[in-house]
């Protein structure tokens, strides 16, 4: 699998760390809604098809990428910096 890093270009899977589901939203930090926290930490969809997820280019620029990957074919539909504000980057 090749993941196209906006900073480094297409790089091998071995350089990346999977960093989890990108569809979940973290509750407000002060929230005491245990169910919301539970869902954030444990509840995961398991879609057969495109999935939004975070990958860190750990063996490269170390940026976290927002990757849309097809769980059936491993095709990468798109990659973008998870934190576009910092680098001002958009999609690759």
């Amino acid at each position: 699998m090749l993941i196209s890093c906006p900073h480094c270009g297409p790089r091998d899977l071995a350089e990346f760390s999977y960093q989890g589901d990108a569809t979940r939203t973290r509750p407000d930090p002060a929230s005491t809604d245990t169910q919301a926290w539970h869902d954030y930490v444990y509840a995961r969809p398991n879609p057969a098809g495109p999935h939004r997820e975070f990958w860190q280019h750990a063996g490269g620029c170390r940026a976290h990428l927002l990757v849309v990957r097809d769980t059936l074919t491993h095709e990468i539909h798109s990659t973008a910096l998870a934190r576009p504000s910092r680098a001002g980057g958009e999609t690759a």
Partner: peptide, 14 residues
């Protein structure tokens, strides 16, 4: 390091 980078990139990018 990875944990801190994650929360900075993903949770609190601001």
């Amino acid at each position: 390091m990875q944990h801190l980078e994650y929360v900075l990139d993903v949770v609190w990018p601001d």
